[in-house]
Design a protein around this nucleic acid. Sequence first.
DNA 1: AGCACAAGTGAGCGCTCACTTACTATTTTG
DNA 2: CAAAATAGTAAGTGAGCGCTCACTTGTGCT
Lengths: 197, 197
Amino acid sequence: MSEPPRTPQSRASNARPRIERAALQLFIDSGVDAATTREIASAAGVSEGALYRHYKGKDELALALFMETHNRLGEMLGDALSQPGSLQERVHRAVTAYCRLADEDWLLFSFHLVSLNRFLPHDSRRQDDPVTRIEHIVQAMMDAGEIPAGNAAVTTSMCLGIVSQAGQHKIYNRFSGPFTQHVDTFTRAIMAILLQK
Amino acid sequence: MSEPPRTPQSRASNARPRIERAALQLFIDSGVDAATTREIASAAGVSEGALYRHYKGKDELALALFMETHNRLGEMLGDALSQPGSLQERVHRAVTAYCRLADEDWLLFSFHLVSLNRFLPHDSRRQDDPVTRIEHIVQAMMDAGEIPAGNAAVTTSMCLGIVSQAGQHKIYNRFSGPFTQHVDTFTRAIMAILLQK
DNA sequence: AGCACAAGTGAGCGCTCACTTACTATTTTG
DNA sequence: CAAAATAGTAAGTGAGCGCTCACTTGTGCT
C-alpha cells in the first residue's frame, strides 16, 4: 500500500520524446526521405539504435507522428461540426479547434500540414476522411438551401484553403504570433465563401 | 545566310521530352526523393545514362521542371496584376492566368503545386517572389483604403489558399473537368475575402 | 546484494542509389 | 565523304542509406 501513482514507463534518458522532436524538425526542414536516421539520432543526442527501440523504422516513426495530429484533428473537427448550433457557430468551433491544435504543438502541426501529400493517398475517398465529411456537410447544406448551390467539392476546397494556406504561410514565417488570433478572420472568410452567390 | 530555320536538336528518338514526362509523373506520385533515376529511365523507355545527356542530375531535372512553371507563373501574374483595370478585373485576370496554366499542362502544373514546399526555402523573402508581390499589392490597397485594413500577409494567404487548395483537391481527384471552368467561382470568393469586414 | 529486464549503444552489413565510363550509332558540318 | 559532334546504351562503382545485433547501462524489486 501507500504506492505512489507509479508511472508505467521506465527510467533512463527518455530518448523517445527527444527522437520525436528531432525527427519532426528534420522531417519539416528536409523532408522525410531526405532526413537520415543518423541525422535524427544525432540531433536527438542519442544513438541510432535507440530509434528502433521505439519504432519499427523511419517510415513508421513518420507515420506515427503524422497520425498523432491526423486522428486528433479528425475527432476535434467531428465534434465541432456535429454539435448543435448555427452554421456560423459550427464553423467558428471547427476553426478554433484547428487553430488550437496548431498553437498547442506547432512542430507537430507543421509536420502534418507539409506531409498531407505524402500520407493521404492521391485518390483516397474514404468516407470517414475529415475532408470528405466536410464535403458531405457542405453538400447537405446546398441541398437544403441553407447555402447557395454549387460544386460542393470546390466550395469545400476553398474553405479549407483559407486555413491551410494560412498555416503554410506561417510555416514560411510570412507572419508570426499565435494562430488562434486569426480565428475570427478565418471564420468570416469562410462564411463569406459559403454564403456568397 | 539563307539558313533554313534549323531546329537545333539533332537525333531521332527524342529521349528528352519522354524523360521529362516520366519524371513529372513519378515525382508527383512518389516525390522527388523517392523516385529513382532507374524508374524514370524505365518509364521513359530509355537507358539511365540518357538522363545525364540532358541534365546534370536528378535534382537539376526536378528544379528545371519546377522553374519552367514557376517563372512562367511569375510573369503571367505580374502582367495580370500590373495592367490597368478595376480590382475585380485584375483579380479575374490573375485567376484566369493561373487556371489557364493549369489546364495547358496539368502534369507540369501539378508538380509545381506539390513541390512548392521543396523549392521555396522556408523563410524566403525575395522581393520578386510572386507571393511577396501580391502581398505588397494587398498592403497598398489596405493603406489606400480600397479594401478594409487587416493583416496583409494573412489576407494574401487566404486569397492564394482559394486557388491552391482547389488545385490540390483536383490533384486528389476530388473533382474533375478543366480548372478554367471555376475561374468565376474563385474570383468571387477572392473578392468576398478582400472586401469583407 | 543480486537478479531481470527495458533502454540505449555503435560498429558494421547488405543493398540501393545517383552517377560514371566505355562504347556504339546517327547526324551535322565543311 | 571524312571528321566532329551529338544522342544513345550497358555495365559498372563507390558512397551512404536503413537497419541489425551483440553488448552495456541503469532501475525497480525482493
